[in-house]
Design a binder for these strands. Structure first.
Lengths: 156, 156
DNA sequence: TCGGATAGTTCGATGGTCGAAATAGTAACC
DNA sequence: GGTTACTATTTCGACCATCGAACTATCCGA
């Protein structure tokens, strides 16, 4: 009933659905997938007090520098993000989000976290701890596998 | 330690990492994200005995018919997929996967499921059942939220 | 102050995606 | 049985996200 195969299938299904949700949400707000991903990264870093630079954003998204410039142009002209030259090193640009982006984030997470909270009501604290452990292990495994394959571009 | 916020964060992280893995894997095999997604859908349907048609594939991927044609052109010329006219309705095309695609699927899932199996060794059957219940509930919640928002394109 | 290195942008080319029109086939109707 | 309306898929022309290479601005070491 809940063997590993089932879990893998459920996991994949969850990823597909979440992915789908992100895509649709972005569409409704006139943002591409890439823009959504970038915005999340910029917001996270900004909130953490260590604003991202374009090049670090490019690295995190596995995107070329020029493509990243395009993404930022779009996000800036749509009013979600601001570019500010660093005061200490004027080559660098610090990326900060506007209220519009924060608002977007709330609109994104509010319905999701609401639905999740409701869906997870029936789980005890112990069970939630187990689930957290499971998710963490799965994340680590995913990252590890990615690292392994990175070295062997098995071309068929 | 494992409150809902933590779970949401872990879930998002898992989705991001999985997404990333799919993207990289596709790159190594010369396939775009779209091609990967299409291939998975075609394989699933083929295995189920009800091969997909281009238009149904387009619907499932939220892609235009013309874009779907391009995807299939790529998958066909790369040898992953075959187009076959339906014998009953010759307007229709039935999509079937070649051995190459099955091989690709194995190469994709083998390392992943291996890593997951190892990562999940420490979980009891009871815990796995709990986790399966959690994943199912989360999938349903994601689908439900998507359905809700679908009606309200909250433009900012 | 000069030369090399770094951060970011601009430019031309490639190619994935789209909407509209074209093509091929089926079904309905007289 | 032939004409018309409809469906499934492909082709065509345009758009734009992405890429690599060249360019500008800035910093650091000698």
């Amino acid at each position: 009933m809940a063997d590993n195969t089932t879990l893998v299938r459920l996991l994949r299904q969850l990823v597909v659905e979440s992915d789908h949700f992100v895509g649709l949400f972005g569409e409704w707000h006139g943002l591409h997938r890439t823009d959504m991903n970038a915005l999340v990264l910029i917001m996270d870093a900004d909130r953490r007090g260590t604003p991202l630079s374009p090049s670090r954003l490019a690295g995190a998204m596995h995107l070329s520098a020029s493509a990243t410039t395009s993404v930022l142009d779009r996000l800036e002209s749509s009013g979600h993000v601001q570019r500010a030259r660093s005061t200490t090193d004027r080559r660098k640009v610090e990326l900060r989000v506007n209220d519009k982006a924060l608002d977007l984030g709330r609109r994104f997470f509010a319905p999701l976290s609401g639905a999740y909270t409701a869906a997870w009501e029936s789980f005890s604290d112990e069970e939630k701890a187990t689930i957290a452990r499971f998710l963490t292990a799965s994340i680590d495994a995913t990252v590890a596998v990615r690292g392994e394959i990175a070295g062997s571009p098995t071309d068929g």
